[in-house]
């Protein structure tokens, strides 16, 4: 099937079978490899992308479902000023270790930071509950997000 959508602001058109998941279209067909494969079952968050601005698991959505929508991946977010600041904050705070979960975390927190300008630590933790990290113990991730939120308020 022919599917058209906006990928990081640019229109793309792909011919895919209906049973192809968005993660595979991005990674294997379009070479967009920022979203990672960690479970392929909506359990870990490494494949998170934004669909019309909202975080979703790209492993658990069919590519045909995003026809006509806008998809943002870490590649697009990294080119945005706010996204860049988030990534820098993650790096500076030590919120990145192995880095495999990080694109997913930056993507989720980009949506969070974009929509909310005042959140408590507990709320940040709630918004990132769907992204698992096995290296950091989450503390520095929460700090990295918090820093960007408070710098936005200034």
């Amino acid at each position: 099937m022919k599917v058209s959508f906006k990928l990081n602001g640019n229109p793309v058109e792909v011919e895919v079978p209906p049973n192809e998941i968005l993660l595979d279209t991005l990674r294997l067909r379009l070479g967009v490899k920022g979203p990672k494969r960690g479970c392929e079952r909506a359990e870990c968050g490494t494949c998170t992308v934004l669909l019309d601005g909202k975080p979703v698991y790209s492993c658990n959505i069919l590519t045909v479902q995003v026809d006509g929508s806008s998809v943002q991946t870490i590649e697009g977010i990294a080119n945005d000023e706010l996204g860049r600041r988030l990534a820098e904050s993650f790096s500076k705070e030590g919120a990145v270790q192995c880095g495999f979960c990080t694109p997913g975390f930056v993507t989720t927190s980009y949506a969070l930071v974009k929509s909310l300008h005042e959140v408590s630590d507990e709320q940040i933790k709630k918004y990132i509950e769907g992204n698992l990290c096995r290296c950091t113990g989450y503390k520095k991730i929460v700090d990295a997000i918090k820093n960007v939120i408070s710098s936005q308020r200034k």
Binding site: P35, E88, S91
Partner: peptide
């Protein structure tokens, strides 16, 4: 700040499946 972490946060760092 580590040498690898910004690339990782920007989604540029490559892991094994990325080379497939």
């Amino acid at each position: 700040e580590r040498a690898d972490t910004l690339d990782k946060a920007l989604g540029k760092a490559k892991f094994i499946e990325d080379y497939y």
